[in-house]
């Protein structure tokens, strides 16, 4: 529930930021001293250690984790722990479900937000400003607080325990609209649009053949951020789904709340379901960092 849809930017009327890649080296504060490195390394260790410990605990027996001093290197018990976790919850299904859910949400959100972002950025219509203001306003509304009527709706529709119960309510993001709009305002040259219209193309054709190609990098970044958020979403999925058809967060919730007694097994489940995001993160971390900073900088 902690910020399922954290917007990434100072809203309001901030001055447009200079057009510059956020990860280009800057030197205005000068070169970092050894103390700076030391502190940063410390912070890095604290950031990464719990994840490393997950790996250690997942590959040990419960008795080994509980020994004094605790082990610091991975052991050989991973497969057995994973087996025990599978006895309780089908983690493969959970991971597949999470891929489907997060993938659908990412694709849907990116599409809807690109459409709306383009309209707000470049099209002229009567309620443009009003509607965009409304969109920004909705960033402040925490969707999880509507969970009770939503639950009642899902019971009535017979969607409890079905993935669409999780996909549909999470399919849009005000931040996404904002993000795409800010990007397209700058990245989409008006001359190009104008040329399309002069040729007599419809707005949808212009969108397909001119806007989409240009929007692609921002769509990819937004897609990654939304995917990550959807993968980690907790509150609504644990209400709407059950252990029969879980996402990974539902599975972890069940593992952690008394499905199994052994911490090593819980950690094996945690490890297995966290690997996909961490892997994506290690591969694309640079782009994700860039996306978050871009979101923030373009206020």
């Amino acid at each position: 529930m902690t910020g399922p849809d954290r917007p990434h930017s100072p809203s309001g009327d901030g001055t447009p930021a200079p057009r510059r890649s956020p990860w280009r080296p800057r030197s205005r504060q000068g070169r970092a001293g050894p103390l700076t490195y030391l502190v940063l390394i410390g912070v890095t260790v604290v950031s990464v250690f719990p994840l490393y410990w997950t790996l250690v605990a997942a590959t040990r027996t419960n008795a080994e984790i509980n020994s004094v001093p605790p082990p610091m290197l991975p052991g050989g018990n991973l497969m057995k722990n994973i087996d025990l976790a599978y006895d309780q919850i089908d983690l493969t299904k959970a991971i597949l479900n999470s891929l489907i859910v997060s993938g659908s949400i990412a694709v849907g959100t990116v599409m809807f937000c690109t459409l709306a972002g383009f309209a707000f950025a470049k099209l002229r219509f009567r309620f443009n400003n009003l509607l965009f203001g409304l969109t920004l306003g909705t960033m402040m509304i925490p969707p999880s607080l509507g969970a009770i009527p939503l639950y009642m709706m899902m019971v009535e529709l017979g969607w409890i325990d079905h993935l669409q119960a999780v996909v549909l309510p999470t399919l849009v993001s005000a931040f996404g609209v904002f993000f795409m709009r800010q990007y397209l305002v700058e990245a989409l040259p008006n001359e190009l649009l104008e040329a399309g219209w002069v040729d007599g193309a419809s707005t949808f054709r212009v969108f397909r053949s001119i806007v989409l190609p240009i929007a692609r990098p921002a769509m990819a970044v937004l897609g990654m951020l939304v995917f990550l958020q959807a993968w980690n979403d907790f509150f609504w999925p644990i209400l709407a789904l059950t252990a029969n058809n879980p996402t990974v967060q539902v599975a972890l919730n069940n593992l952690g709340q008394g499905y199994v007694p052994d911490r090593s097994v819980i950690m094996a489940g945690t490890f297995l379901t966290t690997i996909p995001v961490i892997a994506v993160f290690i591969l694309l971390g640079r782009q994700i960092v860039g996306g978050i900073m871009q979101g923030a900088i373009k206020g």
Binding site: L96, I100, G103, S104, V107, H162, Q164, N245
Partner: peptide, 13 residues
């Protein structure tokens, strides 16, 4: 992607 998603949504029941 949507087709895959839709298929699996139906399959779960």
């Amino acid at each position: 992607t949507l087709a895959v998603a839709a298929l699996s949504l139906c399959a779960c029941g």
